[in-house]
Simulated scan of single mutants.
Amino acid sequence: MSSTPIYEVRPATLNDAQAVADIHASASQAAYKGLVPDEHLGSLPAIKRLSLWREAIEYGDPQVVVALEGDKVVGFAGFDRSRDKGTPATTGEIWAIYAAPAHWSQGVGLALWDGAREGLLEEGCTNVTAWVPLRNERALRFFELAGFKRELSTAKTVPMGAIKVEEIRLKRALA
C-alpha cells in the first residue's frame, strides 16, 4: 500500500482565490528566501495579490487549477498560451506553479503539472514553456524532472518588484 498522498486537481473557483493568494505569498517567500533580499519578499500587498488571483480565476487569464488534500487547497498552477512574442499559438506556458511549503516534495507539484498539461492539451498546445529564476534550484530541478530542457539562449534579466532577477526559459513537448 502506498503512503504517497493523492491530490485531486480541479479548476479553481472564486471561492479558492484567498487560498491561492495565501499559498502564492507563503510559497514564494519560502522559495525566494536567500535569492532576493528579505525586504522584497512579500512586497506585493495581500489585497493586491488576492485581487490578481480573483481576476485570473474569474476571467481564465491564466487558467488556474488547484490541488486539494481532502477539501483544503494545498497548491495551484496558472497556465495558458505562451506570453512570449513570436511563439506559435500551439505553445503553452506554465505561468505559475506553487505548493504550500508544508506540502513540498509530496507530489503536489506533479499533480498540478499533470492538471496543467491536460488543460494545455485540450487547448491544442503541442509544446509548453516555463520561465524560472536561474538561482531557484528547487524549481529548476522540478521542471527538469518533469522533462523540461533549458533553452540556454533565452536567459534574461527581469524586474521583480524593485529588484532584477535572472531567468531562463525551459521547454518541452506535451505529447
Rank of each mutant, 00 (worst) to 15 (best):
W95V: 12
A155N: 00
L41G: 12
K156W: 01
R49S: 08
A155T: 01
G78I: 01
H24C: 08
K156E: 08
R169S: 01
W104N: 12
V66L: 09
L140C: 14
A155M: 00
V9E: 02
E166S: 14
G119I: 03
K85G: 03
K33N: 00
S43K: 09
N136H: 13
I23H: 00
A27G: 10
L140I: 14
A162P: 11
M1L: 14
A96C: 02
A31D: 10
A12K: 07
R81S: 10
L134I: 13
G119N: 05
A56N: 03
T4F: 06
Q18C: 10
L68C: 13
D84A: 15
D114W: 04
R169L: 02
G42M: 10
R81G: 11
R49L: 13
P159Q: 11
T91C: 04
E69Y: 00
R169I: 01
D80G: 15
L14P: 05
G119Y: 02
G115H: 00
L52T: 12
E144N: 15
S26M: 13
F143M: 03
P37D: 09
G124I: 04
Y59T: 14
A139V: 13
F143P: 02
A27M: 05
M160D: 14
A30S: 11
A173V: 08
L110Y: 15
C125G: 13
Q106F: 00
R81T: 12
E137Y: 06
F148A: 02
W95H: 14
P101D: 06
A96T: 03
M1G: 15
G70F: 09
A146S: 11
G161Y: 06
M1K: 14
A77P: 01
T87C: 13
G70R: 10
W53V: 09
A17S: 08
A17W: 00
D80C: 15
T4E: 05
W113C: 02
V73R: 07
A12S: 12
K171M: 03
V132G: 10
D114F: 08
K149R: 08
L14Q: 12
R135F: 14
H103G: 01
W53Q: 08
S82W: 03
G109F: 08
T129Q: 04
L170S: 03
H24K: 05
E69K: 00
I168H: 06
G161M: 10
S153Y: 04
E8T: 15
I168Y: 05
R117Y: 02
P37S: 09
S26H: 13
V108I: 11
F76E: 05
S28Q: 05
L68K: 06
D80K: 15
W95I: 12
A116I: 03
L134M: 14
E144D: 15
Q18P: 07
R138W: 11
P133N: 06
S3T: 12
K156I: 04
V73L: 06
Q18H: 12
A89T: 12
A162W: 04
T157C: 05
G42P: 05
Q18R: 14
K85I: 03
A130W: 03
T126K: 07
V64T: 04
P5V: 07
L170I: 05
A146W: 07
S153Q: 09
A30R: 06
G92H: 02
L134S: 07
G60S: 10
G70T: 09
P45G: 09
A19L: 01
K149I: 06
V64E: 02
L145K: 15
E39F: 03
I6F: 00
A175G: 05
Q106W: 00
S26T: 15
Q29L: 12
